[in-house]
Write a protein that binds this DNA or RNA. Structure first.
Length: 276
DNA sequence: CTTTGCACCTGTTGGC
DNA sequence: TGCCAACAGGTGCAAA
């Protein structure tokens, strides 16, 4: 579930409670995540101080004394800060006890998430080394997007969901950004001119920024036992709205299958063969 | 090299 | 009401 805005909101939520704190104890209850979590992890982490919580794409990085703890929330993961002693429930796989009496707890029912220890510079790690630009940074430009699309037959939706093009665009925001830009999701990437790609670039940034801003307003709930951050209550124009009227033109939203995933779009606002 | 498809997993949903 | 298949989605990796 978490897309980039949810991960960023999680980072902002936990950082004030975790940065500067020492890890006093670690409970690892389930090692079968995306990759097996080494049984030696608790001993490795205990005693180290966390200096910074950062994010690259949808990965969270805790900079500790002797390396980085990399966390990925997968589809269903969440992190919460709770008082020590709070009983662990089903799917609560990892606890980091901190020297402020609190607990950083990872829950992940589907176990698509990841917990990795990195000895070396994070940017050199294979998972991070080939990632494209952050969508809200200056490194993400219309010209760079054009270069990523140049000569490609691949559908534009698959192209923007490829983390080498730009990171952090999942299925929901890919559909929404393409709607906002008036581009049919199946359009071959190489067919789009710079004008269209400028619209798409702007739409990706605007929609992600809006979602992060919406997340900020929910941060106050972050420590509550039931405060799992879900999707923010921003309006979705096409995602999951098959058959319902388009908010712009009233035509029914269509649903197709691409790369084994559902895509939603408006046949009126996102024509296959755009005029002019 | 480019592109496609699958595996991983469980909670939720919809149809019979 | 109960059961079961289909579906949801991020992303590394194998295969085409």
């Amino acid at each position: 579930m978490p897309e980039l805005p949810e991960v960023e909101t999680t980072r902002r939520g936990i950082a004030p409670h975790v940065e500067g704190r020492r890890i006093t104890a670690v409970s690892l209850r389930e090692t079968r995540l995306r990759w097996p979590v080494p049984e030696t992890l608790p001993a490795c982490l205990t005693g180290q101080r966390c200096h910074q919580v950062s994010r690259r794409a949808k990965y969270l990085l805790l900079r500790l004394d002797r390396g980085h703890l990399l966390l990925h929330l997968g589809m269903s993961g969440s992190l919460r800060v709770l008082p020590q002693g709070t009983a662990a429930e089903k799917h609560d796989h990892l606890d980091l006890a901190l020297d402020n009496g609190q607990l950083l707890r990872l829950r992940d029912p589907r176990r698509f998430g990841a917990v990795l220890w990195l000895d070396e510079a994070p940017e050199a790690h294979p998972l991070l080394a080939r990632l494209g630009p952050e969508p809200l940074s200056d490194a993400f430009t219309p010209e760079g997007l054009q270069q990523a699309c140049q000569g490609r037959k691949q559908a534009i939706k698959a192209r923007i969901m490829d983390a080498r093009t730009v990171v952090g665009v999942g299925n929901i925001y890919a559909c929404e950004a393409l709607f906002a830009a008036g581009i049919h999701p199946a359009t071959p990437a190489g067919q789009l001119d710079l004008t269209a790609l400028r619209r798409l670039h702007g739409a990706i940034r605007r929609i992600l920024a809006q979602a992060i801003a919406a997340g900020d307003s929910t941060l106050k709930d972050f420590q509550q036992a039931d405060g799992k951050p879900g999707y923010f209550s921003q309006q979705l124009f096409v995602y999951g709205r098959a058959g319902e009227p388009c908010h712009h033109c009233g035509r029914p939203i269509a649903q197709i299958r691409q790369q084994g995933r559902s895509s939603w779009f408006c046949p009126g606002c996102q024509p296959e063969n755009p005029p002019d």
